[in-house]
Design a protein around this nucleic acid. Structure first.
Lengths: 161, 161
DNA sequence: AAAATATAGTTTGATATAAAACTATTTTTC
DNA sequence: GAAAAATAGTTTTATATCAAACTATATTTT
C-alpha cells in the first residue's frame, strides 16, 4: 500500500531486532551494574563493582602485573592504574615492583582485600541468582552463545584499526 | 570425588551462565559502542554515539523537554544537560524556553543537526547489519526476549530504593 | 491565598573509561 | 654491543555517567 510510506524512519529502526539487541544488552548490563553497586552499598560495604572485579581476578591468580589485570578484566591499562591506586590507598592490595622486569609492578591481595571480597561474593551471587531465577538455563546459554558470536563479529570488524 | 574440591571458586563462578550472561552483555555492548564510534570518526564525522542517540530521538519527536529526552534515552537528566550543552554550542540543536512552563526548555533539531544525523544513519545501519549478519533472526529475537526479561527482573529488584 | 510539595533544569563532585603522549625499561635486530 | 622497536606503567585530557544539592517555577493541600 502506498499509504505505508516511511513516515517514521526512527520508529521502524527501533523495531529492528538488529538494533534492539544492541540496546537490550546495554540496558540490562547497565541496570545490573547499578543494582549490584546499590546492594553492596546497602550492605554497608564501600567497594565499587569495578574494584570487586579486580579483586576477584587477583583471588584467582595473585601477583598479576597491571597489564595482565587489564587484559583479564577487559579494561584499559590506565583504568587499571586508577583503580589500583585507589585500592592501594585503602590497603586492599599491594603494588610490588617486579624484580625480574623493572618496568613491571605485581599486584597482590592483602588480607583486608581478601576479607572484603569474601563479604562481597554472597551479594554478587544473590543478585545474579535473583535476576536470572525464572529464566530457563537453556535459554540463558543460547543467549550467551548469541552474545559471544556478536562480540566476536564486532571485534573482527574492529581489527583493521 | 573428594578430589574435586572448591580449589578454584572464581573459576567455577566464571563458568556459571548467570554470571556469563552479565559479562557477555556488557562486553558486546561496550565493543559495539566503541566500534560504531570509531566508524563514525573514520567517516570524518565529529559526533559521539551519545549525541546521535539524542538527535535520533528528536527526529522521532522534535521539541521534547530535557526531562522527556532523559526518559526516552535512559539517561540521567544531568547527562542530558551536558550533551545538549555541547550540541547547542555546535548548532546541532536549539534550546527554547517553554512558554507554557517556565521551568522547562524544549529542544529542537536544527537543519545542521538533521543533516548530520542523516549522514550518520547509514553508518549505524552498516555496523548493525555487519555485526548481526550471520545470526539467525529467530535466535536474535529469543536473545532479546531473555535480555528484556532480565532487565525487567533487575528493575523490579531495584524498585525498593 | 499561603504553605507545602513536586518538578525541570543546572551545578558540583566523584567515578569510570578511553586515547595519546610520555618515561623507563627490555627485547630485537643488525 | 649499539640502535631500533616493543612493552609496562603513569600522566594528561576529554567524555560520559551518576548522585546530591541547589534554583526557579508549578501544583497541591489546607
Amino acid at each position: 500500500m502506498k499509504e505505508n510510506q516511511p513516515l517514521d524512519i526512527v520508529g521502524e529502526m527501533n523495531k529492528n531486532p538488529r538494533l534492539q539487541i544492541i540496546r537490550a544488552s546495554g540496558r540490562f548490563h547497565k541496570a545490573m551494574i547499578a543494582l549490584t553497586n546499590r546492594k553492596i552499598k546497602e550492605a554497608g560495604h564501600d567497594l565499587s563493582l569495578e574494584h570487586a572485579v579486580i579483586l576477584k581476578n587477583l583471588l584467582q591468580k595473585d601477583g598479576q602485573s597491571q597489564q595482565e589485570l587489564a587484559e583479564n578484566t577487559f579494561k584499559h591499562k590506565s583504568s587499571v592504574t586508577f583503580l589500583i591506586d585507589n585500592m592501594v590507598k585503602r590497603n586492599l592490595v599491594v603494588r610490588v615492583p617486579d624484580q625480574l622486569d623493572k618496568r613491571g609492578k605485581l599486584i597482590y591481595l592483602t588480607e583486608l582485600g581478601r576479607g572484603l571480597l569474601s563479604e562481597i561474593f554472597p551479594i554478587l551471587f544473590d543478585q545474579m541468582h535473583a535476576v536470572t531465577e525464572e529464566i530457563d538455563e537453556k535459554d540463558l546459554k543460547r543467549c550467551i552463545t548469541v552474545l559471544e558470536k556478536l562480540l566476536e563479529n564486532t571485534q573482527a570488524l574492529g581489527d583493521n584499526h
